[in-house]
Every structure is written in C-alpha cells, then in structure tokens.
Design a protein around this nucleic acid. Structure first.
Length: 284
DNA sequence: AGTTCGATCTCCT
DNA sequence: GGAGATCGAACTA
C-alpha cells in the first residue's frame, strides 16, 4: 500500500500545526524534569527484532519514554508490540498528574483499526473529520474521542493512513488508590462501594477514567508529551501468550467485525473480555 | 435544523 | 443477560 509511504512522508514533513484545543494544562510550567529513577527493565533491548533500533526519545522527554520509532509500525504489529509480543516486554502506560503523581499500568489488551478499508474504523471509507484527525496524524499521536456521550476511548495512531490501536485494558501497577478515587468520583452511580483492583482499568473507558485521560489529550504525541507516555515494563512473571480475537462492540461491521484484530494476554485477570474459543487457537 | 447513533459502563433481574 | 444513561458528531435534507 503506497499510502504508507505517503503517510510516513507527510508525518515527517507536511505536519500541519494544528493547535491542541485550549487545554495546555501540564506543559506551560517549565519544571525541570527530574527523570524518575530508571525502571528495572530499562536495559537496552537485546532481544529486539532487527528493524527497530532507536526506541527512546531525546533528552527533552522523560528518560524512559519510548520514542516515536516504536509507534511507526503497522496497526496489527503495534497492537501486538504494546503487549510485548516481539520484545517479551509488555509496555507500561504512564500518566503524570498535575501534582506529580504517577499512575502506571501494563497494557494487556488492544485492538487494531486498519484504516479506510476497515468497516469498523472511524476512518472507514477514508472519512476524515475534525474528530478523527488524530488517526491520520503521525504514529504515536493520540486519538481520544467521546463515546455514548459520557465516556472516552484512547487510541494511538500507527503507521498507515487512518490506522490506529485502541487501548482496552491495563494491569494497574502504580497509583492504584488514586485510580480508585478517579474511577469512583467519575462513576455515575457513585454508590460508594470500593472498586476492586480488577475494575480499575478493565475496559477502554475505565482506563481513561482511572488515568484521568479526557478529550484534552486528543492529538497529543505519546512520544513527546510530559503528562502521558510509554515505558518498558519490568519483565513479566511468565512468558505471555497473545490471543487474537474478534473486536468488541462493533456488531454492525459485517465481516470486519469477525476479524481477529483484538489482542490480549492469555490468562491475564486484567483483560476486559475473554474469548475462550479464540484462546484455543493461541500459540503457546 | 433535525435525526440518528454509537470502538461503553453500570445497575438490575 | 438486558435496559438505560447521555450528548457530541456524523449524516440527512
């Protein structure tokens, strides 16, 4: 697909300077970042695939922040890379709140949306609107949209025009109590009952609530932002098996609804929806 | 200008 | 397993 090359080119060069809403929140204060002490798994990725070499961002961003090269791969590959499929090192999403609190969660479930040909994607048929513009921006750009009038979903643009990856579930690793609080206060019922750990990030909109991610994050760059970024996770306890299953909540999209474009770590209790049938086909 | 419809979550049965 | 919440966007005219 030649669109790839064109997209990549336009990412590098013809980047329109679209102002990111009015919410500039965290950035303005030029606080000298004290890069947090390196995570254990920070070591240079020795087991990496051939093509990817420069993973980390320049000095300007957080030291452990994954750089833009990581995101520059096709949607399916990126969806699997988030789970650590090629690297044996699932990725951790980090959210730094205004007060400095860092919330962390290991990515355990994703969905790939392939672009114009994908009938389930917002970019189907090449539709490009103010809302979904992030899908067409350079790999690593966030696409955050409102769903059902009250929830948010977080996507990361990948290589390929109009292609992206939806983040569906996280294993919470740090800042659990803050997450619980964010989830409780944002919940509609507000029954007051304490949420279990598994209820914090087991769904695309739940994780947005838990990490305080809203529309103001739309079109931000995950490789450069100071308030949200990606890091390598500590090595998992066991080697992870990735399950490929049908995507969730897109019953209308005909044959595209059945394609195995959702990926999750088999056996993880943090996944939003398990698909037993699909797990039979997973490679050990 | 009016209508329709969600890449969801929660609570209830 | 199912209904209701709730509103911004996309779509129709």
């Amino acid at each position: 697909m030649t669109a790839r090359g064109a997209a990549q080119l336009s990412c590098r060069t013809g980047q329109k300077r679209q102002r990111v809403l009015e919410a500039d929140r965290e950035s303005p204060q030029g606080r000298a970042q004290t890069p947090s002490p390196g995570e254990p798994c920070l070591g240079p990725p020795a087991t990496l695939g051939p093509r990817r070499s420069i993973y980390f961002s320049g000095p300007k961003s957080h030291s452990a922040q994954l750089g833009s090269d990581f995101f520059d791969q096709p949607a399916v590959a990126l969806a699997r890379a988030f789970l650590g499929q090629q690297t044996d090192c699932p990725q951790v999403l980090v959210r730094r709140l205004d007060d400095g609190t860092e919330l962390r969660g290991r990515i355990v479930e994703t969905e790939a949306y392939l672009g114009p040909e994908d009938e389930a994607a917002h970019s189907r048929g090449g539709r490009q609107t103010p809302r979904n513009r992030g899908m067409f921006m350079k790999p690593g750009t966030l696409y955050v949209y409102i769903i059902y009038g009250m929830y948010f979903c977080l996507n990361v643009s990948s290589q390929g025009d109009g292609a992206c990856v939806l983040l569906r579930a996280l294993e919470p690793l740090g800042g659990l109590e803050t997450m619980r609080q964010l989830r409780s206060t944002l919940r509609k019922g507000a029954t007051g009952r304490a949420l279990k750990d598994r209820e914090l990030c087991s769904g695309p909109s739940k994780l947005c609530q838990a990490l305080a991610i809203d529309k103001s994050f739309d079109q931000r760059d995950l490789a450069e932002d100071r308030a949200v970024w990606l890091e390598r996770s500590p090595p998992g306890p066991s080697e992870s098996v990735v399950v490929a299953a049908a995507r969730v909540g897109i019953g209308h999209a005909g044959e595209w609804a059945r394609k195995p474009l959702r990926f999750y770590l088999r056996g993880s209790p943090w996944v939003s929806v398990v698909d037993r049938a699909a797990e039979q086909n997973a490679q050990a």
